[in-house]
Design a protein around this nucleic acid. Structure first.
Lengths: 337, 337
DNA sequence: TTGTATGCGTTATCAA
DNA sequence: TTGATAACGCATACAA
């Protein structure tokens, strides 16, 4: 049988009604066991495959959630997807994935596509450059819940699951202080990202707690290019008393900073410590690496986000009556070697 | 308007028929411009979102292709996805992604799910342990074309896009030979993967070409665990004349091998060269790294696979009459530093 | 230029 | 225990 066997085909062959076949296949107890068996047997022989489009259409429910991330190449998101998929699967939900490639325009299209496909809810790690949140307001308006994760929107009023960046930064800085460092630089992320500042807060709180003075000159923002990091390091190392340790916004940045030292100040390489966000599996192969990483539990974040979304989907409370929901996932300090 | 505005809602409000509204929205020239404008205006105001489930159902075509890979965390596949998505997008096809996590059972479920969702075709990088290809035969039987990529099935008779592993292995080995090495080990991948042998062929051809004898003792298979690689290295280094260079099935394996030397034979570290498959961005930060990588163009592979699939979908020739299609993507030799 | 009618495959309700 | 029927939202052939 080519072109999709349907219930009707089976019904005709067995001289029963379509509804009987439908019920038999879904194990409806009002259908006699022998009938169920006959139907299943033929369905199997004929390779019957239910048409989900028709089911969804009929049921006006897809049991599918949409997941939008900036970039699949970033393992951080890949891991979050795994977490979300696990939770979704446990509730018989499917997940469809799409990437914005950091393009807000593409992101808009994806949201539209997913709404047209009638996903039951949306999980979104927003693209870096998004300013206008109207698409998501429109989404909320249609009654499709949206949970943001990892990358919260700048604007308030949206449900979100993010890692506890402030405390992670605190822990990293504290670790360096406890190792005896008194002059600690913060290689900050882009100023356009709110997380850069959240981590700055944690850095400052650690300094405060251990009575170390805060010095603005010890904080330099970089984008994620190697050149920017090199430039920042050049300026750091020109200071009268350069930092003896650095807290890096991301470990990728720390690696570039270490690379700079390798090239320009090899003698200092052993004495200067780094700690940064993001645990990278390949770190173990490096001879010179950060002494500690702050690991964001992105798997757990994916799980939490999915859980929150499913809860919201099944919520009876109307959108308006519900308070904004925020969940923070704690970060782990990982000491290397 | 909650719960999905439909064409009917719009039609009722504007006192027209559903079909007029439908045509107006799809810019049918038989509908007058003013009517089209009125319809579009209200559709916009009311936030009309077409129900794709209904369209698919009606059109019995989803313009969607399913993409199944073992693991999203592997950037190799993530990149292939990007390539496939690009090509699919150019032909107004959507892509849905799912991971098997190397579990053939899960893989079966995914295939089933995708068939139920009536994807127009399937792109599959098969899970490592799959033996039984019956699911895919069944798929072919339903008329849904399947293109395998990256990981070809062992069995013959399936369309596939893979990288030219044989020639890649040849190039890596040749590079080591040209560097002056005469005793070159091959740290082979799992024996359950056909690629392991394909690369062995390339290795042997290079030896042949440069009149070096092939020695079975210089080939040791490992799974991807560090322990296995350590064990293999231990045996290699116990040989009367140990290899002075290694061709590694994967660079991850090469890194473990280097790690072994670091711990057990630090003196030899500088003299022993490695070359392996898979370029890793983080390689640049390593002090001890392979001298060369074979880069598989997975992006290009994704593109090719998608192109082949779309071509097959639009093919008029029936399944049976079509010869098996195979495409090879060439690999690039990348010398480091 | 617009409207009517039909059917895509499935499930749910109700009747037999 | 089974069957008839309607309905989900949309696109299309055909009629007006």
């Amino acid at each position: 049988m080519k072109r999709g066997v349907t219930l009707k085909d089976i019904a005709r062959k067995l001289n029963m009604s379509v509804s009987t076949v439908s019920k038999a296949l879904s194990n409806d107890p009002t259908i006699s066991l022998p009938t169920r068996a006959r139907v299943k047997k033929l369905a199997d022989e004929w390779n019957y495959i239910p048409n989900e489009a028709a089911r969804h259409f009929k049921l006006s429910r897809t049991s599918t959630i949409g997941l939008i991330i900036p970039d699949l190449m970033d393992q951080y998101y890949a891991l979050a997807i795994n977490g979300a998929e696990k939770v979704a699967g446990q509730h018989q939900y499917n997940v469809i994935i799409a990437q914005s490639h950091e393009d807000p325009g593409r992101e808009d299209e994806i949201v539209d596509l997913m709404l047209r496909n009638r996903v039951d809810g949306l999980l979104v790690a927003i693209s870096k450059k998004r300013e206008d949140m109207s698409v998501f307001k429109k989404t909320a308006y249609t009654g499709i819940p949206v949970i943001f994760f990892a990358r919260p929107p700048k604007e308030d009023g949206f449900d979100a699951v993010i890692s506890d960046n402030e405390h992670g930064a605190f822990k990293a800085t504290e670790f360096l202080i406890k190792k005896g460092h008194k002059q600690i630089g913060y290689i900050m992320g882009p100023e356009s990202m709110s997380v850069s500042y959240t981590r700055l807060d944690g850095y400052r709180r650690a300094l405060d707690k251990y009575k170390l003075p805060y010095n603005g000159a010890l904080v330099k923002s970089v984008d994620f290019t190697q050149e920017a990091t090199f430039a920042a390091m050049r300026r750091f190392m020109k200071m009268a008393t350069p930092p003896t340790a650095f807290f890096a916004f991301k470990n990728y940045i720390a690696l570039d900073a270490i690379e700079y030292l390798k090239r320009k100040h090899p003698a200092l390489l052993q004495q200067i410590d780094f700690a940064g966000f993001g645990n990278l599996p390949l770190l173990q192969y490096l001879d010179h690496k950060p002494v500690a990483s702050i690991e964001e539990s992105s798997y757990e974040m994916g799980e939490e986000a999915a859980r929150l979304l499913l809860r919201t989907i099944h919520e009876e409370i109307p959108e308006e009556g519900r308070p904004v929901q925020h969940i923070q996932i704690s970060c782990k300090l990982l000491v290397h070697k």
